[in-house]
Design a binder for these strands. Structure first.
Lengths: 110, 110
DNA sequence: CTCCTATATAACCCATCACTTATATAAGCT
DNA sequence: AGCTTATATAAGTGATGGGTTATATAGGAG
C-alpha cells in the first residue's frame, strides 16, 4: 500500500496525529478513535495493522499490551513528494529557505 | 474526496507532476499516461475529472481542446497536515527555519 | 451539412477496502 | 488450572473505486 493510500483514511490520519504526541497503548488509541469515529475495537486494530505493514508505526509488547510508536520515514517520503509543488504557494526566496532548512536531503524520490 | 484520497492514485500523482511543469492539453496528458500506465483515454479523462472536482486542477476550453492547469491549494493543505510531523526528520532549528519560511500560514488545518 | 478530431460521460464489471461479529492468542490474577 | 483483560485475526458483507467499451458533445475543416 502506497504511503498516500495509507494517508487517505481519516481514522489512520487521526491515529498518526495521536502518535505524533508520543507512544500510546493500543487501548488508548482505540478509546479515542471509538469516541470520535464510532467503530469497533477490531476495526481500529486493523488500521493499526495497516500502519505497521506500511511502516508508519511499530509496536512493542509490554505484558499483555502493545505500545505503538510513530515511524516517520513514510511520512517523510510523502513530504518529499509534495516538496516539488511547494514553489506554488511560497515565494521563491522562502521556498529556497525551506529547501536549505531541509538540507536538500530528498532528491529523485518516489 | 479528501486530498489524500486523490493523491492515493499513482496515475493522478503522475498527472500532477506533469502539470507542475505548466499547462497541458488533455491530449498531451493522455498520451503520457497511456504510454506509462497502459490505460484508455476514458480512464485518463475520469482521473482528470477527479482532479477537477477535488480542486487540484482547473480546465479551460480552447476550441475543441481543454487546457489543464494545476491548482495548488489542495496540495498546500496536504502539505500543511504533514507539517506537524516534520519535526521528526529535521533538526529542531531546521524545522523552525522551515516554519518561518512557510510564513506559519497554516494553523488548525484539517 | 458532413466528417473528423478532441474530450467527456454513461453503463457496467470486478477487485479492494473498511467495516462487522465471532473467535483466537497471550499475559496476569486468584 | 480457570477467569479476565488486552489485543489481534478470521470470515463475511456492502460500498466504492478504477478500469473497460460504447456513446455523446462540441468545434473546426472540407
Amino acid at each position: 500500500m502506497h504511503a498516500f493510500d495509507v494517508l487517505g483514511d481519516p481514522v489512520r490520519r487521526r491515529i498518526l496525529e495521536l502518535l505524533a504526541e508520543g507512544e500510546l497503548r493500543s487501548g488508548e488509541i482505540t478509546d479515542v478513535i471509538r469516541a470520535e469515529f464510532s467503530i469497533t475495537q477490531a476495526a481500529v486494530s486493523q488500521h493499526l495493522k495497516v500502519l505497521r505493514d506500511s511502516g508508519f508505526a511499530t509496536s512493542r509488547v509490554d505484558g499483555p499490551r502493545r505500545i505503538y510508536r510513530l515511524e516517520p520515514a513514510p511520512l517523510e517520503q510523502a513530504d518529499a513528494w509534495l516538496s516539488r509543488f511547494r514553489i506554488f504557494w511560497t515565494h521563491k526566496l522562502e521556498a529556497l529557505a525551506t529547501e536549505v532548512a531541509r538540507g536538500k536531503k530528498s532528491r529523485g524520490e518516489d
